[in-house]
Amino acid sequence: MKYVVLIYGNPESRRAWEGMSDEQRAAGLAYYQQLNDDLDASGERIVSERLAFPELTKRVSVSDGAPMTTDGPFAEAKEFLAGFYLLDCESFERAVEIAGRVPEASFGVVEVRPVMGLHGPEL
């Protein structure tokens, strides 16, 4: 069963990151590396990525068949997607347990959602 863990940033988490020393940041990244290694060893990590800060966002809209883009910053956004994990694990409980290891969970901005599949049961 696949689950996606969505990691949001907010002004509080961003301030925390910006206030860190290089050593603290390195420790934070090492923590993530360990998490990834553990999930690779258990075969549960399909993919995970960190996303650039929202200033580099381009919003796309199509009008008359032509795509238009609007550049950030989107200062009005209090929360922004900062990264994600795509997991393949046994249960929702297990996915939640993994999400609990994501440091951002201490800011209360980590979500887990099941992925919709093609499994069609007998009706």
Partner: peptide, 10 residues
């Protein structure tokens, strides 16, 4: 509430 795409469509 379903997690199945074909079932949701149905």
């Amino acid at each position: 509430r379903t997690l199945s795409l074909p079932e949701q469509a149905y």
